[in-house]
Deep mutational scan, measured.
Amino acid sequence: MTYKLILNGKTLKGETTTEAVDAATAEKIFKQYANDNGVDGEWTYDDATKTFTVTE
C-alpha cells in the first residue's frame, strides 16, 4: 500500500510517499525520514487517506 507523509516543519515543508505492508511499517519509515531531516513534532494519522502528518 502507498502511504503519504505531510511535513509541516519549521524549516522543512512538503510531502513524500512510501510503499509499506502496513501503517506501522510506514510510520517507522516516515519517523526516520523526519528525524533525518530535523523535523520533530506532533504526529497524526488518517486511516481513511493513509496519510501521516507531522507538525512542529
Rank of each mutant, 00 (worst) to 15 (best):
T53E: 06
D46Y: 05
N8T: 08
G41L: 03
D46M: 05
Q32E: 10
K50G: 06
W43I: 03
V54S: 02
Y33T: 03
T16W: 15
A20G: 05
I29Y: 10
D22G: 04
N37R: 14
D46N: 11
T17I: 08
W43G: 00
Y33F: 13
N35L: 14
T16G: 04
Q32G: 07
I6W: 04
T16D: 04
G14L: 14
E27R: 09
F52S: 00
L7T: 06
I6N: 04
N37A: 14
K31M: 09
T51Q: 04
W43Q: 01
K31L: 08
G14H: 11
D22V: 03
A34G: 03
K4H: 13
M1N: 15
V39N: 03
L7Y: 12
Y33N: 02
K50F: 11
N37D: 03
K28N: 09
W43D: 00
I29K: 07
E19I: 11
E42V: 14
G38F: 07
L5Y: 02
K4Q: 05
Y45Q: 01
G9E: 03
D36A: 13
K50S: 06
V39Q: 04
D47H: 12
G38V: 04
E56Y: 15
K4S: 07
T53G: 03
N37T: 08
I29G: 03
T25E: 15
V54H: 01
T55L: 06
A48H: 13
W43L: 03
A48F: 12
F30P: 00
V39I: 15
T55D: 07
T18H: 06
T11M: 12
K4T: 14
G9D: 04
A48V: 13
E27W: 11
T11V: 10
V21Q: 11
D46Q: 05
E42N: 11
A24S: 11
I29R: 07
N8E: 12
V21N: 12
A23K: 15
E56V: 08
K31Y: 06
E15S: 06
K28E: 09
T53W: 12
D47P: 15
D22R: 03
G14D: 08
K13Q: 12
T17Q: 12
T18Y: 08
T17K: 08
G14P: 04
I6M: 06
T18R: 05
K10E: 08
T51F: 03
W43H: 00
Y3R: 01
A26P: 00
A20W: 02
L5D: 01
Y3I: 02
L12N: 06
T44V: 11
E19Q: 15
D47T: 09
A48R: 07
T55V: 08
Q32S: 09
T11P: 04
K31H: 09
L12M: 13
Y3A: 01
A26H: 00
Y45R: 02
G9V: 12
K13L: 08
E56P: 05
A24Q: 12
D36H: 08
K10F: 14
Y3L: 01
V21R: 08
A24T: 09
Q32I: 11
L5S: 00
E19M: 14
E56D: 12
F30W: 02
V54L: 09
T17D: 05
T11A: 14
M1A: 13
A26V: 03
Q32N: 07
G41E: 01
T2A: 07
E19D: 10
V39T: 03
V21S: 13
G38Y: 07
K13D: 05
K4N: 06
E15L: 11
Q32A: 11
L7R: 02
Y45K: 01
I29F: 12
N35Y: 15
I29L: 07
T18Q: 06
N37F: 14
A34V: 09
T49M: 06
A26N: 00
K10T: 09
A23S: 08
L12V: 12
K28I: 10
G9K: 05
D22K: 03
K31S: 04
D36W: 07
E15D: 06
A23V: 12
W43K: 00
V39W: 14
Y33G: 01
A23Y: 14
K50I: 03
G41P: 01
D36T: 09
L12H: 13
E42T: 14
T55H: 07
A23E: 07
D22I: 03
A48D: 12
L5I: 04
D40N: 15
I29D: 04
V21A: 14
F52R: 00
F30M: 03
D36S: 10
T53R: 07
A23L: 11
L7A: 04
E56N: 05
F30S: 00
K13V: 10
V54T: 04
G9P: 03
L7G: 02
A20I: 02
V54G: 01
V54Q: 01
E19R: 09
F30R: 00
E56T: 07
T17E: 13
N8Y: 11
F30I: 01
L7W: 15
L5N: 00
D22M: 04
T55S: 07
K10D: 07
G41D: 02
M1F: 14
T17N: 07
K4P: 01
K28G: 08
D47E: 15
F52Q: 00
E15A: 08
L12D: 05
A34E: 01
A26F: 01
T49V: 06
Y45V: 02
N8I: 14
A23D: 06
K13Y: 12
I6S: 04
D46K: 04
V39A: 04
I6Y: 08
T25H: 13
T16P: 03
N8G: 04
G9N: 05
E19K: 11
I6H: 05
T2P: 06
K28T: 10
D46F: 04
F30K: 00
K4L: 09
M1S: 11
F30E: 00
K28V: 10
